[in-house]
Each structure stands twice: as structure tokens, then as C-alpha cells.
Design a protein around this nucleic acid. Structure first.
Lengths: 313, 313
DNA sequence: CATCAGTGCGGGCAATTATTCATTTGAGGA
DNA sequence: TCCTCAAATGAATAATTGCCCGCACTGATG
């Protein structure tokens, strides 16, 4: 029986008394005939030696494991994983809920912020969960245009919904989500009334965006921003996803296509310094999310358990 | 999603961050957007709700579980269970080791003690593990006679071995372990020189004893204290074990037999107030140990894992 | 509309645990 | 035998956690 063994035995014994027995180090010391300090050392050695295994017996636990791993794998600043619920819809609600919470937390900060907000059903749901807040110190800007091709207000532009909840100066982009041509886009964005918006968009402190798939019933198609022909062409060029209208391939690189020159959204830099948080879930969006992560278009993610697991797998 | 659910979720989340993430409550508070106190409450709720499971990944852990259960089951003051080792002999050594440690701990106490010591191979091994100690303040008395039937010193009387290690007044019983008759026993114990011993034996602060089986190669037979005929008779009366020579049945009651009136040992009361600690292990001794526990002849036990498990099973 | 029990919150303090540091101890080597 | 060095020890101190208490808010009730 080597001395190291007896040492480990004692460490395990002390740890048992401390964690399982729920005793104070003083008590353990008197039982084991040691000083309190020695007991402290033993317990800490047991912990350091990996003898003490703790786990949290709750579904959340696995989510947090996934979040931690995603953070490490993709160098994320922020990551939240919500538990898988019965239905896909319920899970989506949970993602929205979590996103709402996170937005609320940022809006609750005392220092003035410029918050950029994208589009999408998930974000819209998130904003629905917001309470009414007085945030006059912050500025909230839309990262996308808010005009549909038919001239109506874009359905899933979230800024207006947000303005109903949050008392803060808001800055929409009164231009088409996707202009008819690159030239028109340039002209529209040159409007004087958009100068402030442009300045603010370059200095966002935090951005919340959605991620859209390109294949199938892509939001861009459903909402009439691009045609099925556009979609087919983009898919042919390897497009897998889009964020605030910018279409990217599986590597997270923007596709070289007409669409990306006509999008009126704020610039979408890779590896932004400020948090750019995507809220997205669902089987169909996985390639898009993975691409956005790989291309470092986002550095924060709120998603569901299954998606998180898939992204790590 | 009920409020209790979100509460538990948050509790689990906080507990995860605290235990798995290894974060301080302050950090968790800032991450979750709560006060430190709230985090403390959440963590404590998670613990109270049984969400936090801790285990010690070391063989000792199971031993301590068994010791705890034995204590509860038999109302023991002291219980120690040592891990099962490769061989039975090694396990015996471990039991002796543990017993030695415990004796040492008692001898290290500053207040004067009267320590009673029994016999047996296990105890002998325990004393072998003792370091040299200066214990002039204590008194150590033998609980059994030290004379073999052939007039020699009884082999496994532990007192003399102990005296070599420990500087303390020792009080042997210079009488046969088992006298020829009840009358002889009375006469011998009436010797004036034994008066001090007798007084001390009534006021022991702590006793260490062995437990012997009666069937098979019982120590009493091996050492020549009783004959095979005695053994057969005792077995016929339901004897299962002995402590310092007193023979008892499966219920821990002393057998009504000649032998128990001829034993010169100190009295062996049931339910003693002072700790009476038995060191015993091995498959063959189990019925004896169980009986001693049931009859409350002992209130402390040092044994091995397998024996402990069997006693609980 | 006032009242009131119930609940949760955060401040402040007490208890507990972790860390640092000077000193001692003990093993091994000259 | 003495010396050296590393490990271990316990006192002092810092950091962290746990707990009590008053206060504010909420929702039910008269």
C-alpha cells in the first residue's frame, strides 16, 4: 500500500464525508483526527483528482453541456440551447422565448446601446415575449429594409413590433428588402434620411438575426423577395443559407450573385467584434446554421437541443 | 410551461453553472441577470430538490456507504468498513490496519482513558501497526486472562504486544483464560492483586475486542481453551460466536453453559455505554458478528466490505 | 378601494471554505 | 552526523457562501 494510495484513500474519505455525508470540514477534521486545513487539502485534492463527480439531474443539464461545447467549438461569445419539446412548434416557441429573454437582458443594461435587429419568424416570436420596457437610452435599428416587392410593409420585419413593446428611438430602413438592381440599391441607400441609419449600422453594439434556408420553402421565396428562378440559380451556386438577405454557401462565404448586390440590408461582416446572435432551429436550417458558424458570420447562437447536437456531431 | 417548471429550470441552470461550470455565484448572477442571493437560492433549491447528484469515484466510497448503513441499522457509535482486497489475508491486514489507526486515535486523546483490550489475530495485527506512543496518562487493561491451559502465556493475548509499543500502565489478568471450574474462577478472581484490575474493568472508557466463531476451527479450540467436545456441546446449544471467551447464540444471548461460568474475562455487558469495538472479518465469522450486533454486545465494528454487505443483506 | 397574507428580493452579517505564507518535519545524501 | 530540500503543517487572512430580516410587490378578499 503506497503512500500515494493512502493519501488518495483519505482524500476520497474526506470528500465522501463532505459531499455525501454533508459534514463541515471541522467535523470531518475531528472524525479523521486531522486539522481543518488538512481536510480542506484532502477535499480539494479529491476534487482536483477527479474523484468527485457531480451531475445535474435535469433536462437543462444536457442543453448546457451542448451550449458549452458549441461555444468552444465555434468560438462563440454567447450560446444558449433550449430543451427539445414535444412538438417542433413548441421547441420553436422555446427558442423564441430564450431569445426574448436575452434581448430583454441586453435592453436592461444601463449603458446606451445601439441594437440591430434582423427579421424572421423566430425573432418575431422573441419580440412577442418581450415585456414593455422603457429604454430611451438605447437606439434600435433595423438591419433590413422593410418594404416588400409589392410596396407593402415586409411581414416579418421585427422593428415595428419591437417599437410597440420598447420605448426607444427606432430606426427602420424605408427601402425595399431587395432592390430591383444594384444601382437602385445604391441610389436608395444614398438618401439623406438614411445617413443616420447608416452611421448607426456601422456601430451596432449587439445584433440579433435570424437564419434562413435557401432550399425548399425559403423565407426569401415565401415572402416574395426572390423568385423560384433566383432560388434555383442560388442553389446551383451552392447557396445554403441567408442572414438579413445576404446569401452564403456552405463555407459561410457570400455567394457571388446579383442578389447579394441588390440586398439593401446593413453590411454583414465576417468575424464581427460585437455580438451577432442568431436565433434559429429546425432540421432544415442546420446546413445554413453550420455555414454561418463556419464563416463566422455570427458569434452567438440560440437554438434547440437537436440542432445543437447535430452541429456538434 | 408552468412557473414551477421555469423555476426548476433556472435552478438546474444555476446549479449547472455552479457545479459543472465551476463558476462563482457572482458570475452566475451576472450571466443570468439575477442577484447573487437569488442565485444562491436557486442553487440551494436545486440541491434540496435532489437535482444535484454527487458521487465519489473511489472504492472507499462504497465502503463509507456501507459503514453509514451499518451504523444506522445497528445503532453503532463507530463503524469502519475497509475495501475488499485481492486476498483474504490482505483484507484482514487492512482491517487490522484500520483498527490500529482507530486505537491510535483514542490513545492520542489528551484526557486519561481506561482502555480495555481483548484477544485475537485481528487485534494482534492491529497492535502491530501501532507506532510507539507515550501514553502515561492512560491505563490499558486486558479483558481476558493470559494463561493457556498448559500454563504458558496465551498466544494471542494482545496486552503484552501493546505494552511494547505504548508507554502506559498496563494491567494483565494473570489467570487462565478459562478456569477448570466455576469455583476455581471465583477463587482466582478474588486474588487481591486483581482488585485494581477488577475496578478498572468496570470503568473502561473504550474496548477493542475480537469476535471468534465457534464452529470449525474456532480460536477457542485452536488455542486449546476448550475441547472439541465442549465445542460440539456448545454448537448443540446454538452457539455461533464468542467475544473475550463469552459464548453467545444467534440472538447474541450468552449460552447457558459451563464454559460461560468458567471464563475469567471481564464482564461483557449487553448495550454498554462506552464504545465496544469489534474488529472482525471473513465469511466464517459472519453469523457471529451478526449475533453480536443483534445482541448489542458491541456498538462499534471494523470489518471488510464483503462482510459489511452481507450483514446488511 | 383598502387591507392583508404570501412571496420574493436584496442588504448586511455570520459561517464556512480557500489561499497564502512562514515554519516544521522528515527523507535522502554527502 | 549533519546538511539540504521538498513536502507537510497550522496560523493568519481573504474569498465565498449561507442565512436572517425588513421591505416591496402581488393577488385575493371583504
Amino acid at each position: 500500500m503506497s503512500s500515494r494510495d493512502t493519501k488518495l484513500d483519505d482524500a476520497a474519505r474526506a470528500a465522501w464525508l463532505a459531499y455525501i455525508g454533508g459534514m463541515k470540514q471541522d467535523e470531518i477534521a475531528s472524525i479523521m483526527g486531522l486539522s481543518r486545513q488538512s481536510v480542506q487539502r484532502l477535499v480539494s485534492q479529491a476534487v482536483a483528482g477527479g474523484l468527485v463527480k457531480t451531475r445535474i439531474d435535469h433536462p437543462i443539464s444536457q442543453c448546457m453541456d451542448l451550449a458549452r461545447d458549441l461555444k468552444a467549438r465555434y468560438g462563440l461569445q454567447i450560446c444558449e440551447v433550449v430543451p427539445q419539446l414535444a412538438s417542433d412548434a413548441a421547441t420553436g416557441t422555446a427558442v423564441s422565448h430564450a431569445t426574448g429573454h436575452l434581448i430583454e437582458r441586453w435592453l436592461s443594461k444601463p449603458d446606451p446601446l445601439i441594437l440591430g435587429i434582423g427579421t424572421g419568424r423566430t425573432l418575431r416570436g422573441a419580440v412577442d415575449h418581450l415585456p414593455h420596457l422603457d429604454c430611451a437610452r438605447h437606439k434600435i435599428i433595423s438591419l433590413t429594409g422593410n418594404i416588400s416587392p409589392d410596396g407593402s410593409t415586409a411581414l416579418y420585419n421585427v422593428l415595428f413590433t419591437m417599437a410597440e413593446k420598447v420605448t426607444a428611438p427606432t430606426f427602420p430602413m424605408p427601402v425595399p428588402v431587395i432592390s430591383a438592381s444594384a444601382g437602385e440599391r445604391t441610389a436608395l441607400l444614398g438618401q439623406k434620411t438614411l445617413a443616420t441609419h447608416h452611421d448607426l449600422s456601422l456601430h451596432t453594439d449587439i445584433r440579433f438575426v435570424g437564419i434562413g434556408a435557401i432550399e425548399g420553402d425559403a423565407p426569401l421565396v415565401l415572402d416574395g423577395f426572390i423568385t423560384r428562378e433566383d432560388q434555383a440559380r442560388l442553389l446551383g451556386k451552392g447557396a445554403v443559407g441567408e442572414i438579413i438577405g445576404y446569401v452564403f454557401d456552405a463555407g459561410g462565404q457570400l455567394i457571388d450573385d446579383d442578389i447579394n448586390t441588390r440586398v439593401s440590408s446593413a453590411p454583414l461582416p465576417a468575424s464581427p467584434v460585437y455580438p451577432t446572435i442568431a436565433a434559429a432551429h429546425g432540421h432544415r436550417k442546420r446546413p445554413a446554421i453550420r455555414a454561418a458558424l463556419d464563416g463566422k458570420l455570427i458569434n452567438g447562437l440560440i437554438t434547440d437541443e437537436a440542432t445543437a447536437a447535430a452541429l456538434l456531431g
